[in-house]
Amino acid sequence: MIDETMALRLRCSVNGRERVDDVPARMTLADYLRDVVGLTGTRLGCEQGACGACTVLLDGKAVRACLMLAVQAEGMHVQTIEGLTAGGRLADLQDAFHRHAALQCGFCTAGMLITADDALRKDPAISREGVKRALTGHICRCTGYQPIVDAIVEVAQERRHA
């Protein structure tokens, strides 16, 4: 018989801390981060890859945490909004989002910040159009997107002149 309920041993690092947990195969990385590790900054919107709210870094690359199983992170480094905030890596983006009122309810913001940072690092000379393209996988129901794009474009300029 095939055992569909067996728990599997997962060893990974989350925001620099080594973890060992037993998780069911069907648990997504997003549910693991929220329900097992207790890091609720990673939001779950659609759970089917459309909204971008659960975006985290896996070995430094942006991924959808709802489109991966937790066990797939075996041996890998996961960084969530909590780790990236504590490290100060997103401070300029967070300040700019605040100044531009680029969030209202804030549900989508963690994913937006991680994608924005990823896009700025990949292409420091990113244009306004490039910022819009980078954000295509994110949905915000509050802001109408313009303040978000404004904030990221401003940080792109600041980082270029820093």
């Binding site: 890859g49 971008g52 975006t55 896996l58 690359k61 942006a62 991924v63 959808r64 489109l67 991966m68 994608t115 990823d118 896009a119 990949k122 980078a134 295509t136 996988g137 994110h138």
Partner: peptide, 9 residues
């Protein structure tokens, strides 16, 4: 194709 997060996987 999709967006950076989808293309990474």
């Amino acid at each position: 194709i999709g967006n950076a997060a989808v293309r990474n996987r």
